[in-house]
């Protein structure tokens, strides 16, 4: 059928349209399908668990995340410190709970920016083509090659002090991370655009167009559901790099400000002590992996649940 090259017949079109018609699933439908998808259910449970830990953990767990104890530096896990202590004798569990909160905030924030800028521009560029496509792809090429580090340094220096004063350390962190997503959205845009380039030539789109469907409607009705999977996958994968990038930024003094932790920061702080106390690298790394795996499988699950035709 791919090779037919001929306009689809009306009958085909109708069939295709029917096959592709995926209106938003009704709520009860969604939950019943979710219940029958164990992986999605488990991932959802774990994800909720992680969020609950990050949100309420620091308030419930009594140890301080920032108070040092120079008598027990780099201690192994014990009854006093369930996950041991870091290189200044601070309780690792307390830091991890606090750090997860910071890392999740940053990840959600950067991904929102990324999806908003990248997916939206990629969709528009791929679909409308022409001058818009040229502008968006050139802009994307340019920003992709741009030294994000330099931009982050500039932004942190120019706006950092006033933002820190008003919104605290996390405000500055979001500012710097935001400046990084300015150079990272092109990747998402390029992925989406190339997918749209293929999709818009497919029968259900050409057919819908020949039937006089207006363009925004085609985009929302046909293209959006089809790129959703890719956007979800790309952004869940991105979360790991956002968390790590935050740590790399802090190596330059542009990430979270000490003594506050983030997952990436905990890993970079513990790395030099890998051989002295590997636990301190292991715990935050495991947390990072857990977040990435959970979010990825959750993304898979949600996609399957939202689109019945996806599960085979």
């Amino acid at each position: 059928m791919r090779d037919s090259g001929q306009p689809a017949t009306e009958a085909q079109t109708i069939r295709l349209e029917a096959g592709r018609a995926v209106p938003a699933p009704k709520a009860f439908n969604f939950w019943s399908r979710l219940r029958s998808n164990p992986l999605a259910l488990i991932s959802l449970g774990m994800f909720v668990g992680i969020v609950v830990l990050a949100v309420f953990g620091p308030a419930v767990y009594p140890m301080s995340a920032t108070r040092p104890d120079y008598a027990s530096i780099n201690a192994f896990p014990s009854a006093d410190h369930f996950l041991g202590t870091d290189n200044l004798g601070r309780d690792t569990l307390a830091r991890l709970l606090q750090g997860m909160r910071v890392s999740l905030i940053v990840a959600v924030y950067v991904e929102t920016l990324n999806i908003f800028l990248g997916a939206l521009l990629g969709l528009l560029a791929g679909f409308y083509g022409g001058l818009l496509d040229v502008l968006v792809t050139r802009l994307a090429d340019m920003l992709f090659a741009f030294p994000g580090l330099l931009l982050a340094i500039l932004v942190a220096a120019a706006f950092g002090p006033s933002v820190t004063e008003r919104f605290g350390g996390i405000g500055r962190l979001l500012l710097v991370a935001g400046s990084l997503s300015l150079v990272s959205w092109p990747l998402m845009a390029r992925l989406v655009r190339s997918r749209v380039l293929v999709l818009r030539e497919q029968e259900f789109v050409t057919a819908s167009r020949s039937l006089g469907g207006n363009r925004p409607w085609i985009m929302i009705q046909h293209l959006l559901p089809n790129i959703l999977g890719m956007v979800l996958v790309a952004s869940t994968l991105d979360i790991a790099s956002v968390v790590i990038n935050e740590a790399v930024l802090s190596l330059l003094g542009l990430g979270i400000q000490p003594p506050d932790p983030s997952i990436g920061k905990m890993i970079t702080e513990a790395m030099p002590f890998l051989e002295a106390n590997g636990w301190q690298v292991f715990f935050p790394s495991a947390a990072l992996m857990a977040i990435v795996l959970t979010v990825s499988f959750l993304g898979d699950g949600l996609r399957d649940v939202a689109d019945p035709s996806a599960s085979t």
């Binding site: 190596l251 330059l252 000490p258 003594p259």
Partner: peptide, 16 residues
Amino acid sequence: YGVEGDNERIVTVLQS
């Protein structure tokens, strides 16, 4: 402070 080597650990100790 400048971010390099052990600097961050040390200023965190001074802070405390």
